[in-house]
């Protein structure tokens, strides 16, 4: 039983971690926490099922098409819900604008796709039992994403520019960096990462329109616990959350596991508002 808790816990945790990274990627260039992060995960599953099962594309082609669609959704988010409210960041209008967009995405999916969970294709036809692909594909996806991001941030000038904007937006602008284009690029990247989360986890979560809010919350928990913008915190937090949740599922039942997650979330945040790995106190006066 321990093995199956670990297998499913790490798999689910990797999905949460990826959603958390999508949150962080958008946050780093815009200081906006977007409610569309979870919907991107949902769309990854839906597009995957649409392209591969319904339209019959080969998995690899479906995967690329899914990435492109989710990146586009990311860019739309930036244009529709983020850019117009950036000037009034302190009023938190972005909470409302991104929530509105997220709900519109969800409703369109419910009507145009289905309100019932739809099957998701097997990708590699590999493994069974604990080693089934549905358990390790999310983990591999998460691992590749982390490596990819590390390479991007450390080895490329664009990646360094992302980091520069994340650290000090004003100084980056003063230096003449194309802040607006980089922000759009980061939203496209976040879209692709969110989509990847849903695609990789498609066999676990299925292609279901209501996955959005769930992923929104469970993807946000590791970000909140790990500290905003901290990808390492998001991965550790996501995996811990996944394992904890699956353990509680097996031991005390699903309902109480979500109650427990919720309580821990609130208690930790009240004790450490900046997250367990973060430390940033803004001057107010």
């Amino acid at each position: 039983m321990l093995a199956s808790i670990l297998a499913s816990g790490v798999a689910v945790g990797a999905i949460y971690a990826l959603i958390g990274i999508a949150y962080n990627t958008m946050f780093s260039t815009s200081r906006v926490m977007s409610f569309t992060a979870g919907q991107l995960g949902m769309l990854g599953g839906v597009f995957g099922s649409l392209f591969v099962l319904r339209l019959g594309l080969p998995p690899i082609a479906g995967f690329v098409a899914m990435l492109a669609c989710c990146a586009l959704i990311g860019v739309i988010t930036e244009f529709v819900a983020v850019r117009p409210v950036l000037k009034s960041l302190d009023q938190h209008l972005y909470v409302l604008s991104t929530l509105a967009l997220a709900l519109m995405i969800q409703q369109v999916t419910a009507i145009k796709w289905s309100t019932e969970p739809q099957p998701f294709p097997r990708l590699f036809e590999l493994g069974s039992g604990m080693l089934d692909e549905k358990f390790w594909v999310p983990v591999i996806a998460c691992l590749l994403t982390i490596i990819g991001l590390e390479l991007l941030y450390r080895k490329t000038l664009v990646g360094r520019a992302f980091l520069a904007i994340a650290e000090d937006n004003f100084a980056a602008r003063a230096l003449g960096l194309p802040e607006r284009n980089l922000r759009i690029a980061s939203y496209a990247l976040a879209g692709a990462i969110g989509g990847l989360a849903g695609f990789a986890g498609g066999q676990l979560l299925l292609a279901f329109f209501a996955n959005g809010p769930l992923l929104n919350f469970y993807g946000f928990v590791p970000v909140a616990l790990g500290g905003l913008g901290n990808n390492r915190g998001a991965v550790i937090g996501g995996l811990a959350l996944g394992v904890f949740q699956q353990a509680a599922n097996f031991l005390v039942g699903g309902i109480f596991s979500s109650v427990a997650v919720f309580c821990i979330f609130i208690i930790v945040l009240l004790l450490a508002p900046q997250g367990l790995f973060g430390s940033h106190v803004a001057r107010r006066v």
Partner: peptide, 26 residues
Amino acid sequence: GLPALRLRTFYFAMTTLGFATIVTQV
């Protein structure tokens, strides 16, 4: 409401959202 006393807006929005999900599940 407790988180609203200490946390940023988005966190509070998330908490109320999470609470809504959990009440239905219970």
